[in-house]
């Protein structure tokens, strides 16, 4: 395919997506997720349209009812006249590279509704738990005019931290009686929540879980406005309307106080610096003479012949020698 044909095709896809054509949105997500040929051009075509969607991250322990809650949040947001995008992230098997993405099971009734777009994604071996594709998919849905983009990830390992690096606002979900009294009061995790939810409020121990979260928040929170702890029962929709109201309210405050803008700048920094690192490594190349050189340097570090700093410095010099960055 010639350069201009490709650009034409990408243009067509972006135009379709921006106009809200579901199939174009879906294919554009694949294009950027796979970093397939033309994804950078596509990005420059639609990126100017992004920034309008409210990106809400939702995370919590497995079995906490996240998918059901996201399903109900989407319904409520629809009732209020919003278009809703959902990205449900499940882990990719590190052994086979495959994944079974099953969150959609609980959201299938939205399939008849053109105002809801649901996409399942695997983490695809990305260390942080969220693939780079997740952020790109958020951007596509944003450009396609979805008012809210809900990003759901399972809170194990690093993904709950990672989710704050692409969300405007994070909802931290917990449930009573999953063994550990409060699973999410772990170092660094309380800090990322803007709204706390105790789901399955009909279960014994719900009040206690709420009290413990309140106590932990009383002890300290990062932002000047103390996050609230809400109770929901996603199965029956109880508390979901209140949750939407609180999300909107907190979101408004984040925006008005200028924190949202700072957050987004921070996210941009993260994205750009990561891309920069990728590019530098790509420039060095993993094969050929330079790849070998780097490989030897790693061995030297492991044998304590060089410090990691010295090795990094040498690689950096080598990249510079190869030409302007």
């Amino acid at each position: 395919m010639s350069q201009s044909d490709r650009a034409e095709k990408v243009r067509h896809l972006v135009d379709g997506a921006v106009a809200g054509d579901v199939r174009s949105v879906s294919r554009l997500i694949s294009l950027v997720e796979n970093e397939a040929s033309g994804y950078e051009e596509a990005y420059s075509m639609f990126y100017g349209r992004t920034g309008k969607a409210k990106v809400i991250g939702i995370t919590g322990p497995p079995g906490g009812g996240k998918s059901t809650l996201v399903d109900k949040l989407a319904s409520k947001l629809r009732q209020l006249g919003n278009r809703v995008g959902v990205i449900a992230v499940d882990p990719t098997s590190p052994f086979t590279g495959g994944a079974v993405l099953g969150d959609r099971v609980r959201m299938q009734r939205h399939n008849a509704d053109p105002g809801v777009f649901i996409r399942s994604m695997g983490t695809r071996g990305h260390l942080g738990g969220l693939s780079r594709g997740t952020a790109a998919a958020v951007d596509v849905l944003d450009a396609a005019g979805y008012d809210y983009v809900l990003v759901e990830t399972v809170g194990v390992g690093q993904s709950e931290i990672e989710i704050s690096s692409l969300s405007d606002l994070v909802v931290l979900l917990n449930v009573p009686g999953l063994g550990d009294e409060i699973q999410i009061i772990k170092a660094g995790i309380m800090e990322i929540g803007d709204v706390f939810v105790v789901n399955k409020m009909d279960r014994p121990g719900a009040d206690r879980t709420k009290a413990e979260l309140e106590y932990a928040l009383d002890l300290g929170h990062e932002l000047p406005r103390r996050p609230k702890v809400l109770m929901t029962n996603a199965e029956t929709s109880e508390g979901v309307a209140e949750l939407v109201a609180e999300i909107d309210d907190y979101y408004g405050w984040l925006r008005d106080s200028g924190i949202l803008e700072k957050r987004r700048a921070k996210h941009a920094e993260l994205v750009v610096t990561r891309m920069l690192a990728d590019r530098l490594m790509k420039r060095l190349g993993s094969e050929g003479e330079d790849g070998e050189l780097a490989g030897e340097l790693y061995v030297c570090v492991s044998r304590r012949l060089l410090t990691p700093y010295e090795a990094a410095e040498r690689i950096f010099k080598r990249i510079i020698e190869k030409g302007a960055i």
Partner: peptide, 9 residues
């Protein structure tokens, strides 16, 4: 009563 919704996989 409402309808049951299954768990995922």
């Amino acid at each position: 009563f409402g309808e049951y919704k299954p768990t995922g996989m």
